[in-house]
Amino acid sequence: MKLITLTTVLFLFAFQAEAQRYITKTGRITFFSDGPLEKIEAVNNGVNSALDSQSGMFVFKVLMKSFVFEKALMQEHFNENYVESDKYPLATFKGKVKNIKDIDFTKPGIYDAEVEGDLTIHGKTNHVATTGTFTIEGSDVLGKSLFTIKLADYNIKIPSIVEGKIAEEILITTTIDLKPLKK
């Protein structure tokens, strides 16, 4: 009898532990800036993200060269002159969902999320905080957030020839469809 109880407990524990981590490798990040000279828009559909539903640990890994622009010239300038993607290929966010206990991953619905952590772009790290939502749909967790960053905070310099004509703040939208990690 004891053995059955122990086996049941271990089984339940193992099941719960497996269901704790949600991941995606096809998350979407877009950025948009609206300056007097040029509107700049780009999209990256290969974002890695992981969320731990117990601890609230939340991670993003974004390859800068995966951002696609409408114009090839803009994409070239973005990689070579702004984010220097040869030198700094990866942007990361490592933080947590502060109110993770308010989110019931077993109950469908839209939950507000408070996220904070360290954002590293162009080799420079800043502590950031933002809000977003998690939508629970079956076993999937759809995360959405919208926030702005200042280029200067990440040592991204606007060339003097276009200074004042390109926006100094960038609007970032993230959409991630997280699925439970199967082992």
């Binding site: 490798k25 290969g46 890695n48 890994k61 974004v62 390859l63 800068m64 060269k65 995966s66 993607s85 290929p89 990866l90």
Partner: peptide
């Protein structure tokens, strides 16, 4: 394919 880099888990070719 075009190598976009390594995101600490996968090498990405596009």
């Amino acid at each position: 394919g075009f190598c976009a880099g390594y995101n600490d888990t996968d090498v990405i070719l596009e």
